[in-house]
């Protein structure tokens, strides 16, 4: 299991939620994980129903079995100043840079520098050890930029290493790249069983592979249960109206005669079944397309009541089941 878990995905697929659930899932049995946010949206704070996260690693949740989840919202400007301080002991020069707008420039405009700082900070957390030499965090989970930007984001250190051909930035970029391209890292894609997210996932996986970055798993989010089997769906589409009306009536939903309460339910229910059938068919196609990518796939259930903290723990439990199954398979 790689120690840096990067979670990407198309907008609207629940990337942040899945990243948080993964951090919870990996924290079980006394492990400690760090959940890292890089886009400054405070999505993690909203998810865990806490106030906005400062630029500081802070415990936000306890997982079953005594594990802990820490969270960090990385701020590029603060990360740069830290970094300058750490490597160059730049007290006043750092402040002068800030005054001139150089820090702003570096973190917003200088190509990729922002991304270098963000990935750099995450890699630092992965490598950090305590006094006894043990890793401070067992896993670091990153809520990463969306699928369309992920390869550029992770590969930016290569780009910067090319731009800055020597010097400390070059060295730093190289060091970060060594972590990102090693088996220590796994990049997962969150998708839905819909055409565009699946297509973007396929494109994203191809891009990552081309950049020789380690591809992890496909995490299919919001999977709805298939409530009617194929046969029933065909039957529903056929001439079973009267029988269905009678069954509804028998279940206590009113009269089956024409215009009765039960009879009036038949059309809307059959219409919903037809939509369901169409959706099931589309989902089947998308599952096939995902299978074509050739990665392991985890399916996560749709939370009918929307997402709250309890839902997050349920998603974490679902992920844990998948992880456990993988581990058992690995052992066998």
């Amino acid at each position: 299991m790689s120690r840096l878990q990067v979670v990407s995905g198309k907008g609207g697929t629940g990337k942040t939620t899945v990243a948080a659930a993964l951090a919870l899932a990996l924290a079980t049995e006394g492990k400690r994980t760090l959940l890292v946010e890089v886009e400054g949206r405070q999505g993690i704070a909203q998810l865990f129903e806490t106030e906005a996260l400062p630029y500081e690693e802070r415990k936000i949740a306890v997982a079953s079995g005594g594990g802990e989840v820490y969270a960090l919202a990385i701020d590029a400007e603060r990360a740069l100043l830290d970094y300058l301080q750490m490597f160059y002991k730049l007290g006043s020069a750092g402040r002068a840079l800030k005054k001139l707008g150089a820090i702003d420039f570096a973190t917003t405009i200088a190509p990729g520098l922002r991304d270098v700082l963000l990935t750099g900070k995450a890699c630092e957390a992965v490598r950090r050890r305590d006094k006894k030499g043990a890793y401070v965090y067992d896993y670091v989970v990153m809520d990463a930029p969306p699928t369309g930007r992920i390869t550029k984001f992770l590969n930016v250190n290569d780009e910067v290493a090319g731009l800055a051909k020597f010097g400390p930035i070059h060295n730093q970029a190289q060091a970060v790249m060594r972590v990102l391209k090693s088996p220590e890292t796994a990049v997962h894609f969150v998708t839905l069983l819909e055409e565009m997210p699946v297509q973007e996932t396929a494109d994203g996986v191809a891009e990552l592979r081309a950049a020789e970055l380690p591809v992890g798993k496909v995490l299919v989010n919001m999977v709805r249960p298939q409530l009617l089997d194929e046969e029933a769906l065909r039957a529903a589409a056929g001439e079973r109206r009267t029988a269905v009306a009678q069954a509804l009536s028998a279940a206590g939903l009113g009269g089956a005669r024409r215009g009765g309460h039960a009879e009036r339910l038949v059309d809307p229910l059959l219409e919903q079944a037809a939509e369901h059938a169409q959706r099931v068919e589309l989902e089947r196609e998308q599952r096939e397309a995902l299978a074509g990518i050739g990665l392991d796939t985890y399916e996560l259930p749709m939370l009918g009541e929307g997402l709250d903290l309890a839902g997050l723990y349920r998603l974490a439990a679902a992920l844990r089941t998948h992880l456990g199954a993988d581990r058992a398979q690995g052992a066998a």
Partner: peptide, 17 residues
């Protein structure tokens, strides 16, 4: 009234949906 098994299952599915 009597409801055949398959119709009962089908209708139950429609209701769950």
């Amino acid at each position: 009234g009597e409801v055949a098994d398959d119709v009962a299952q089908l209708t139950a599915g429609l209701l769950r949906l």
